[in-house]
Design a protein around this nucleic acid. Structure first.
Lengths: 156, 156
DNA sequence: GTTTATGCAAAGGCTTTGCATTTCA
DNA sequence: TGAAATGCAAAGCCTTTGCATAAAC
């Protein structure tokens, strides 16, 4: 699926969602969706705010927060709390069954996939009656680069 | 391991840690550790503050935050962000390889274990060179009770 | 024309910080 | 005695809210 196809698909989903919920289809909302889907990876509200300020569309932070809530509700966006101080977001099309490695030294976030997560969710559901809807697996540790650095320093 | 044994073990670890780091062994720090280890389950700073205010030891919020940082650093406590608005903590002795189910309807957090997580961490380490230190798997969804409630309402 | 959304600024809530006071070493 | 920790209150920061203005329907 190309970026353009993702954009088109996301717009269709968002339009349908707004219609169904009786929400208005404002230009700000679609501009935000477009900007969210224009980039790969994670971002926070401030970064999104800056990126939109540079471009044609200048929206308020309040509208960003409001719109992110809408996008979260129709699963076009995911929210993370990699660090305790702020929320990170990412478009949901990039989210097809992946999880995150977080380096505690440099803060870099990388993605990985493992089908066993799905198996775990199935087991949990069977055993407890809990109905899993979504999940987040965050593995904290040291990335290969920081690990190498640390060993270099130890050698000094 | 009984609660008393956990207390004793945690105190030993904390004492050793403070010594090694050249930090002072204040009565507040040990009172906080003791209170943290006196209860099962998750708590936030405000709850801890209230519990200590009731008892003999009254400590400031600043000291609570400072001490939690110390306890986090020596792995006697874990921090979670189940909801975006505040941090939850739990003693680390209760943390032996378990993860969390979070009900999006009633907010209840329950625990579960699955050894496949460890396997996933091993695989990640082998494939990417990332060194896993700790992890958090949060599965969001609907607990059995809320699921039942919802079905009841559907029937109306 | 209504009603909803936006934008701005102010307020809120959790967390951190600065500084005087106390306490540990 | 001297450095570090505590407590209090104020400040910070992300996020939410209230209200006037603007835009959707």
């Amino acid at each position: 699926m190309t970026t353009a196809e993702q954009q088109a698909s996301a717009q269709r989903i968002f339009t349908e969602y707004l219609q169904r919920k009786g929400h208005r289809k404002t230009s700000e909302r679609f501009a935000i969706l477009s900007e969210v889907y224009a980039h790969e990876g994670h971002f926070d509200i401030e970064r999104l705010y800056d990126r939109m300020k540079v471009k044609k569309y200048r929206v308020s932070r309040a509208t960003l927060y409001n719109t992110m809530d809408l996008l979260l509700e129709c699963d076009l966006v995911r929210r993370h709390r990699f660090t305790p101080d702020r929320s990170s977001f990412e478009k949901a099309h990039a989210f097809r069954q992946h999880d995150h490695l977080i380096c505690d030294a440099c803060g870099r976030v990388t993605e990985f996939c493992d089908p066993r997560i799905q198996q775990i969710k199935n087991t949990v559901s069977e055993v407890t009656g809990f109905k899993p809807l979504r999940h987040a697996l965050h593995i904290h540790g040291l990335c290969a680069a920081c690990l190498a650095n640390r060993n270099d320093h130890d050698r000094d």
